[in-house]
């Protein structure tokens, strides 16, 4: 089967010929339905990788292929969530979540006629992430963690084939984070969506992903491609097992080495 996302020998430089070389000779493949995690030292080009896949940045060299098409402009099959929730403060949480539907070509013409269905869908998503009944609140009336959950709903509302998460749980406390890990895990299991997750949290990567890419320091490239052997469904208890911790430790060592090599 051809992979859903395929990055081949990509070089990406910001700010013209003399600018920063963010990633160099980057290679990576993610199969349809797979849950991939990307880890690496800070500033190694993980966010750049996300922008390349979504078509927000076009590389100077190499190919980015998503759903069998060369990426030359923003691809519309993705949902994105950043570390920073970027909720629009003048819209209620529900309206914020419906925003992608006003943009995505497939939905924007149907939104008005089928408003009820869409709202119901948004409310169901809110329910899933534990925000039931908060749709009418404005983002600034929600806590950081709640905004982050709403952010996740917004990334999911248009049923993207590919979900890109760039450190979406970075600013959350440990308990909320674990709760949202389970939400993501269940979403992935239920909907068969392909997910690429950038994270600094190695336990998060090992707990959630099928495959972990370790990146080198800038200019970033993939130095290690690890399969995560643990069977699904995974429970949070898995984190206390030896195999799990060994893997986290091994990853830790690899990133530490990549940092020093820079």
């Amino acid at each position: 089967m051809t992979p859903l996302v395929s990055i081949e020998n990509v070089d990406m430089r910001y700010g013209g010929a003399a600018g920063t070389l963010a990633v160099s000779n980057l290679n990576l493949k993610v199969a349809k339905g797979e849950f991939a995690a990307v880890v690496g030292p800070s500033g190694c080009g993980k966010s750049t990788l996300m922008k390349l896949v979504t078509g927000l940045q076009i590389p100077q060299a190499g190919d980015v292929i998503v759903a069998e098409k060369q990426v030359t402009k923003p691809v519309s099959i993705v949902g994105m969530a950043f570390q920073n929730p970027t909720m629009l403060p003048w819209r209620t949480t529900l309206e914020n979540i419906l925003l992608p539907l006003e943009i995505v070509e497939k939905h924007r013409h149907r939104l008005r006629a089928n408003k009820k269905q869409y709202v119901a869908k948004a409310e169901k998503l809110l329910e899933i992430v534990g925000l039931g009944g908060f749709g009418g609140k404005f983002p600034w009336q929600l806590s950081g963690g709640m905004q982050q959950r709403a952010n996740l709903c917004r990334a999911l509302i248009h049923e993207p084939e590919l979900l890109m998460l760039d450190e979406p749980f970075g600013a959350l406390d440990a308990f909320t984070r674990e709760e949202l890990w389970c939400v993501i895990r269940d979403l992935h299991a239920a909907q068969g969506v392909t997910i690429i997750l950038v994270t600094h949290d190695l336990r998060e990567a090992v707990f959630l992903a099928d495959r972990i890419f370790v990146m080198s320091a800038r200019p970033g490239r993939v130095i290690r491609d690890r399969e995560v052997p643990f069977a699904r469904p995974r429970e949070l208890e898995i984190m206390y097992e030896k195999g799990f911790n060994d893997m986290v430790q091994a990853l830790h060592g690899e990133i530490a080495k990549a940092r020093v090599a820079a």
Binding site: K51, T54, V75, S76, N84, T86, P100, I103, V104
Partner: peptide
Amino acid sequence: EPETEDVLRALGARKMDIMLK
């Protein structure tokens, strides 16, 4: 904010959409 713009552009938003929304 560039991030807000990125979220919308990744959905296929045109300049006009970003301005209006």
